[in-house]
Design a protein around this nucleic acid. Structure first.
Lengths: 229, 229
DNA sequence: CCAAAAGTGTTTGACTTACACCCATGC
DNA sequence: GCATGGGTGTAAGTCAAACACTTTTGG
């Protein structure tokens, strides 16, 4: 049995994959492999298959196009204007992925036709993908103001100055390192290592690791690492 | 031309319509008019048609099933487990609507087969609609912690004690009226009327109206009307 | 005049900011 | 020994919480 007299349509998943390379935020794009707009740059996307959920589709597509597994992946918003795809009606469910660029950079560049673009130097994109990216960045800024989600972008070991650069990049603001340190250290989210990163100063900055337990437990709590204005 | 070898599926919109009657939060449900699960209680839903966007579909369905127009309506989340509807594959995009119950109570009860249920006395619902409601309430709590969205639930004129009851109901907490008053009055969101509501005390409480300008302009700003714990 | 809700004022303490200053080290 | 980024300490200011108290008015 089926519902009668109803229009059936394709459902696609498109993922906005965001990374931070230590200086800038980047988005992973791919050259579309089929018509229309073949060879044009596009978000990572694909159609939802018969027996998979939306989340499963997002994970599968991410894996197929980039080899990425077990990354932070969150559903964002669904787009459904009737003519957003000129070929036929397609509903697009977007997901946002946050990944540590360094861990995957080689793999992605070598094995797949994907490329990282800085967020202020994006190429022209197909369909409504630019709108999707705008929405993802707005959401990320909003979420990062309140929750420590940006840690997903960092490697296992990172320094507080790196953290500061990351926050400053996303919010285009300057952060007082002394106050930031105090706040983040009092949050119980970081575990200090003995090792130092000497790549950007003579004295060296201590490495920290994320305390995954308190991170998960207190993720929904509102943290306030940013200055008010 | 069409994309080949892809599965097309139905796309539905389901709206969680939330109201507050002065004492409790309620959700508007309808008795489903067609099989399967005919006569069972369900969210307001329907299929997305050929030439309408998702937002348009949500507005149209809301209007058709309840007569409601121009209400607060926000896309929430999309649900797509393969067997969530036993008849055939259906992707459901959920929307949350917030309305002033009193303004529409008569209209809805008389003209449509819809009914308000208190959120802790919901009937058994079809498919995954309970999960959708849970998600909507979580989202509403989250949003109301940070933004003055609950004003959407109130009539044009309301008192501060009513506001307090509304916040207390959603967060199951007690609020100090003196501190709450000070915070909300200093927010610039309210315009004081000369009239008083004497229905719940001898002295009477002044009516206020929402300042729509500052409301819209500062909606995204973080307000903090709730106590910390 | 009293009960009961509305509303005002004040103290306390926690948290943020701003900023002076010290530390470590490669050159 | 000095320049440079990393990190600590502290005083001043701001804001929310707690709570005692006054106002209003129907019965």
């Amino acid at each position: 049995m089926k519902y009668s007299n109803q229009e059936r349509m394709l459902v696609a998943v498109d993922s906005i994959i965001i990374g931070f390379d230590g200086n800038e935020y980047k988005i992973l794009l791919i050259q579309r492999g089929f018509a229309p707009e073949k060879e044009k740059w596009s978000l990572m996307g694909g159609f939802v298959q018969k027996n998979e959920s939306l989340d499963d589709a997002a994970s599968r597509i991410l894996d197929q196009l980039t080899g990425l597994k077990n990354v932070y992946l969150e559903q964002l918003h669904s787009f459904g204007k009737p003519n957003r795809d000129p070929i036929e009606r397609v509903i697009a469910v977007t997901y946002m992925a946050l990944i540590d660029i360094q861990q995957y950079e080689q793999q992605i560049n070598n094995d797949f036709h994907a490329r990282w673009f800085p967020i202020n130097q994006l190429p022209k994109l197909i369909f409504d993908h630019e709108e999707m990216i705008d929405m993802a960045l707005m959401k990320l800024r909003y979420k990062a103001t309140l929750h420590p989600v940006l840690f997903e972008l960092l490697p296992d070991k990172f320094t507080i100055p790196q953290l500061i650069t990351m926050y400053e990049g996303l919010f285009a603001t300057e952060i007082d390192k002394r106050n930031f340190s105090r706040k983040i250290l009092s949050s119980d989210l970081l575990i200090k290592e003995n090792e130092k990163d000497k790549s950007s100063s003579k004295r060296g900055a201590f490495y920290f690791r994320l305390n995954r337990e308190t991170y998960k437990k207190n993720f929904q709590r509102i943290h306030n690492f940013l200055p008010k204005n």
